Amino acid sequence: MKKGIIGGTFDPFHNGHLHIAYEAFDKLNLDKIVFIPTGNPPHKDYKNVTDALVRYNMVKKAIANEKNFEINDYEVLKDGFSYTYETLKHLRKIEPDTEWYFICGVDCLIDLDKWINVACILDLCRFVVFLRPGYSEEKVCKQKDAIENKYNKKIYLINLPQMDISSSYIRERIKNKKNVSYLIPCSVEEDINILNLYR
């Protein structure tokens, strides 16, 4: 079994996340994509992040009809900060025969040396980076080579057709009472309206 992990704050979950999931699923020939909403992300001021269970339920509803997608609540239910190496250890423990692919943006690769227990992360999964606008290919390749040489592990780069959507852009549009229906799944828009989020 080959499963891809897409983690994130998902505040809110949007069509760009689905786009990455579909593309990674096909390009990596995966059996499943697992979305893992963060609980308390250590790199953000979590006091300004929407409640974890609200974000979890947004993702759960948005992927409810996707047979190749699933969601995991480990980080949402976990006490304290959410660290990638701990999540990967947990996943390997409950599914020891699964080959895990950790899928993230190029910004994660650039900042990877700032993460906790990088060597452990690279031991527990295949680290897959999708390219985003705003980063030079030269800079990305240089960082990729540096990480591979430092940890003696391979980093996988994949090119995806770009959808330049961000959660912060969506929040800003909602705050300014602008339409976001073309950027997010219908169920996410319903939750945002019912719970009066991002106003």
Rank of each mutant, 00 (worst) to 15 (best):
N57Q: 10
V188Q: 03
D31Q: 06
A21F: 03
I71Q: 07
Y182N: 13
P41F: 11
I103L: 03
N57E: 13
D164P: 01
T9W: 05
I36K: 01
I20W: 04
P12L: 03
F130R: 01
N68F: 12
H90A: 08
E172H: 12
E138I: 14
E86S: 08
E138M: 04
G4D: 09
K27L: 14
D113S: 11
T50G: 05
Y182A: 11
D31H: 11
G39S: 09
L131K: 13
S187H: 01
I94N: 06
E190P: 00
K154M: 05
K27Y: 07
T98A: 12
T38C: 15
T9L: 09
H43M: 12
L91C: 06
M1D: 07
R92D: 07
I121C: 12
F127E: 06
D164A: 11
V129K: 02
V54Y: 04
I71F: 05
L131Q: 10
D123Y: 02
I6C: 04
M163A: 04
P185D: 01
P96W: 05
Y198S: 09
K114V: 01
K78S: 12
F127Q: 04
L195Q: 10
V129F: 00
K44W: 07
H90S: 09
C141S: 12
C104L: 07
P42Y: 10
P161K: 12
E190R: 10
Q143M: 15
L124M: 14
E70N: 08
L183Y: 08
L91I: 05
I116D: 14
E148H: 10
K153I: 08
Y101N: 05
C108K: 12
E75A: 04
I147D: 01
K142R: 14
N65L: 12
I155P: 01
K44S: 11
K154A: 13
W115Q: 04
E86D: 15
L160A: 01
L18V: 08
G134V: 09
D111S: 15
I5L: 12
P185H: 01
G134E: 09
R126L: 00
E190G: 00
F127R: 02
I5D: 05
Q143P: 04
N179D: 15
D97T: 12
H17Y: 08
E95D: 14
N176L: 12
K44V: 04
L91Y: 06
V140I: 15
A64E: 15
A62I: 05
V128I: 14
V180Q: 02
K178D: 05
L88T: 01
